[in-house]
Amino acid sequence: MENTGKVKYKNLFYKMLRIRMVEEEIAQRYSQKKMRCPTHLSIGQEAVAVAVGENLFATDFAVSSHRAHAHYLAKGGNLSALIAEIYGKATGCAGGYGGSMHLSDLTVGFVASTAIVANTVPLGVGLSFSQVLKKQNAITCIFIGDAAIEEGVFYESLNFAVLKKLPVLFICENNLYSVNTPLHLRQPIERPIFKLAHGIGAKAEQFDGNDIVSMFDTVSKVIKDLRNQGGPWFLEFHTYRYKVHCGPEDDLNYNARPKEEIDYWLARDPVSLLQSKLLELSFLSLKEIDSYKQKIQEEINKAFDFAENSLFPSINDKYKFQYIDNNLEWLHSVLNPQKEVYTIE
């Protein structure tokens, strides 16, 4: 790592640490039972979101899945609105109608996350297609997990993206588990996911998803290539989640996973890895880390205070979004039945 990387990696570290601390705070406060919705934490997977998010502009789009807090934050999504959304408050990023699994911040291009595995994949491809049709010089990122590869719509969508050479980036966080079912019971382990995507015609690569230093520059190059040469690109990141599939509990002491596997991944914690590297290179001091933590904690406390103090949506608004009203008087006035002539050849 050169000296020029100092600012860059300190910035990446700050962002990863921020996401980690936000999710740890959610986990810690979850038992207060004020966050009353299924909540999927991505503690252990922060490097992927940050590596990608750092290469995006607000004009780029992103969509994600049920485990989306990190993607939302890395794309620049508003933290207070995220926490308020999990609290079910009117000030939430989806007005309390969405919850943890349905996040959106259109001001930064984080279009949506949804709760059904792989169901934002075609939607993201459609967004990408819309960017091309509108000649918007931008890309779309689709965050998925390893289980999305097992859904048929993934193949349909990737095929269309390849066919149209769409500027779309698939980010596959392979954390080895779909709920509690390990990868080897779901896919042949001798067949890497990124090769499968490559076989369909995407440009594809795999990365160590926990060591951001090892992959950040390549990810930047890929995204540049996507902007200049088109896509799609498919990136598989090997990573690991520490928490249960859904909820705040630690999943490492349930004997649900092999001990060697847990030890291997814990030794490769993305935040600790980068921290050690930065300390080792004297890019960062323990004191600076403390000041980071303090600053982030203040921001988090503010976000939780905001959520706690916000109002719930009015119960009178429960039908508010049943349909969108739109007046078609304009259509009525432009249709002129007397003037229309239809000719049949």
């Binding site: 075609p122 939607l123 967004l127 297609f129 509108k134 719509v153 349909e156 269309f160």
Partner: peptide
Amino acid sequence: EERVFDMPTSENAMTGVGIGLAINGF
């Protein structure tokens, strides 16, 4: 052909593609 197009035999994905197009103004 940009506004009137054929498609792969992928009803599910192409519905999602349509939703994505609709969200961004089409």
